[in-house]
């Protein structure tokens, strides 16, 4: 039955509404979310706080049941037992037993994953090395700092050497050095052929890691695709920082950056990537007696893209709300 397909996770029109409290209040969290995860890719799940990223991962693992929609996890139903043997999950918060040491925690996870004794030892050594946990294996969990706890939960997710990793904010709470290490680790996992889903709201991190991304907003995917496709050519233009004593005239297509660096310094944006045009602007600046301090090419990044996408979604939502009000009245 279990077809060895290249789609490790398929979600088809998943919706989720929580019912809370005595009043049975309905809280819609996800609406018609569809996505697929191909073998060997790193997928970035993006979205502001409360967008539903964590809920989506829990649905994939069967911890939360979708209100509607279907899905397949490694060819089985969502949260399927055999599928879970091949999945590693790192929760958002480091939930572990405070009384156990890091080593015992890993031992427990190995037991739960049904690893043999010999393999347990080998795997613990391996993940301890991957997450540089070696010197903390004998430390009780309650004495570990947040960052080390985070690395321990990552080690727990990696322990059974799973094909698919669902990492919920794996970079949260880490210092810059550790972030770099974890990013390297994720990339090396991809190199090994593992599939990784990373959720985050820190866009530059995801940009560096992910092949594809999806942007969730209020439980709806408002944009998704390969990063390169989403960002297009990738260049917004070139920024020129100048110092000058008197006002400067430039062609109309140039825009003056709103904020000034200092009273006599300014930044101009030269849009597009036509070298002739840039040359023309620079010559004009020199002619007017400005001294040039820096020339920076402006790449269009995810942050800019998503700010725009969110903005667009917001205005659309407001528009439709307005429409519906009109219909109602």
């Amino acid at each position: 039955m279990r077809a060895e397909c290249d789609q490790l996770l398929i979600l088809d029109k998943i919706s989720k509404t929580f019912t809370t409290g005595f009043r049975r209040r309905k809280v819609p969290v996800l609406r018609d979310v569809s996505l697929t995860l191909g073998r060997g890719e790193v997928f970035g799940l993006l979205g502001p706080n409360g967008a539903g990223k964590t809920t989506l991962m829990k649905i994939a693992l069967g911890l939360v049941r979708p209100s509607s929609g279907r899905g397949l996890l490694l060819g089985g139903p969502l949260g399927d037992l055999q599928a879970r043997e091949r999945v590693g999950f790192q929760p958002e918060q480091p939930y572990l037993y405070p009384g156990l040491t890091a080593g015992e925690t890993l031992d427990l996870m190995a037991g739960l994953s049904r690893l043999s004794r010999a393999r347990t030892a080998a795997r613990i050594d391996r993940v301890a090395e991957q997450c540089s946990l070696g010197k903390y294996l004998r430390t009780p969990v309650r004495k570990l700092s947040r960052g080390w706890l985070q690395r321990l939960t990552l080690a727990c997710a990696l322990l059974s050497d799973p094909e698919l990793l669902l990492l919920d904010e794996p970079l949260g709470g880490l210092d810059p050095e550790a972030r770099l290490a974890v990013k390297d680790l994720i990339l090396s996992l991809r190199a090994e052929g593992k599939t990784v889903m990373v959720s985050s709201h820190i866009l530059p991190d995801v940009e560096a890691l992910a092949d594809r991304v999806a942007l969730l907003r209020d439980g709806v995917i408002i944009a998704s695709g390969r990063i390169s496709e989403l960002l297009g050519s990738g260049s917004e233009g070139v920024e020129v920082e100048i110092e000058c004593q008197r006002p400067i005239q430039l062609p109309e297509f140039c825009t003056l950056a709103r904020e000034r660096v200092a009273s006599n310094r300014a930044r101009w944006l030269v849009p597009g990537d036509d070298p002739a045009r840039l040359q023309h602007v620079l010559a004009s600046l020199l002619r007017q007696g400005a001294s040039i301090h820096a020339i920076t090419p402006q790449r269009r990044d995810l942050e800019a893209f998503f700010t725009q996408a969110m903005e667009r979604a917001r205005t659309e939502a407001e528009g439709s709300a307005w429409n519906s009000v009109e219909v109602a009245s």
Binding site: L81, R84, F89, P91, Y95, Y97, M109, L112, S113, R114
Partner: peptide, 14 residues
């Protein structure tokens, strides 16, 4: 409450 169960139940355990 402390959600250790999330970690446990994400492992292949009934």
């Amino acid at each position: 409450d402390c959600k250790t169960i999330l970690v446990l139940l994400s492992k292949p355990i009934r």
